[in-house]
Amino acid sequence: MIPFYALIASFLLFRGVGLLGLQYWNDWQTALQWAIAVMLLLGASAHWGRRRPDLVRMVPPVFPGKEWIVTVTGMLEITGAIGLLLPAVSLAAAVCLVVLLTAMLPANIYAARNQLMIGGKPVPKLPVRLAIELVFIAAVLLASPLI
């Protein structure tokens, strides 16, 4: 839930700064791109911090190399966050982020169905988890140059 809250709070902050007159932040799409970057960087930090063992447990048993998967997805989140902010590659980054978020969905479903914990707190129930994932995907699509 923390990445979800970070997305909402940072979007409101960046958008508010734009409404106060800072020209760069005046565009809602730019504010959303930066908010997604904040969300992704925050989420990626868990891939190497205290929550790493929780993320490793989230990877369904059918997938080998759980540690490797967690490391790579963290690196891809960082890469996507940076890429989304660079106009030359933001479209490609958005497409890749949608693919990444979709690819990580089995871990989120597994975690919800098995009532796993992240940072000592239970993961959201499956309907909530799916809704959050759809919000993340929709945000990336709305922040992309396609819109």
Rank of each mutant, 00 (worst) to 15 (best):
L40C: 07
R15W: 14
W25D: 09
Q33Y: 08
W34L: 03
I69M: 13
A37L: 00
I78D: 09
E77P: 02
A107T: 03
S10F: 11
A103G: 10
M39N: 04
Q29I: 07
A131H: 03
P61E: 14
V17L: 15
I118V: 15
L85T: 13
V140M: 00
A46N: 13
R51V: 12
S45K: 07
R57K: 15
L12T: 08
F63L: 14
L40T: 09
L86M: 13
D54K: 04
L32S: 05
E133P: 00
L91I: 10
P127W: 12
P64K: 11
K125W: 02
A81V: 04
A44N: 06
W68I: 09
L42F: 15
F11S: 02
S144H: 11
S10M: 12
V72C: 00
L86R: 05
H47W: 01
S90M: 11
P3D: 06
V135R: 04
L86D: 04
G16S: 01
G43S: 14
A93P: 10
V62Y: 08
A88K: 12
A131E: 04
P61K: 10
S10G: 02
L130V: 10
T30C: 07
A35E: 05
L42H: 06
M104Y: 11
E67I: 01
L42Q: 08
A88F: 14
G18P: 01
I132V: 13
V135T: 04
M58T: 01
V17F: 06
P60S: 00
V38G: 11
A138R: 09
P106E: 05
L146E: 01
P61A: 12
V128Q: 14
A93E: 01
W34D: 07
L40E: 05
A103R: 05
G119R: 12
L100I: 10
R129C: 10
G18H: 05
R52D: 04
Q115A: 15
S90G: 11
T73N: 13
A111V: 03
Q115R: 15
A37S: 13
G120S: 00
A94T: 05
A92M: 04
V123W: 02
L116H: 12
L12Y: 00
V128H: 10
L141V: 15
L85V: 10
V17M: 13
T71G: 09
I36W: 06
T79L: 15
W25I: 06
P122N: 04
L19A: 14
M75D: 02
W34S: 06
A139K: 01
F14R: 03
Q115H: 15
R113Y: 03
P106K: 01
L130N: 03
V72F: 08
S10C: 13
I36K: 03
W68Y: 14
Y24K: 08
A6L: 14
R51N: 15
L101Y: 06
A131C: 07
L40A: 13
L55Q: 07
N26D: 14
L7S: 03
P124V: 04
L126Q: 13
V56F: 00
G65K: 08
P64M: 05
A131G: 15
L116R: 12
D27T: 11
V56K: 01
A46D: 15
V56A: 03
K121L: 14
D27K: 12
R15I: 00
G43R: 05
L142H: 07
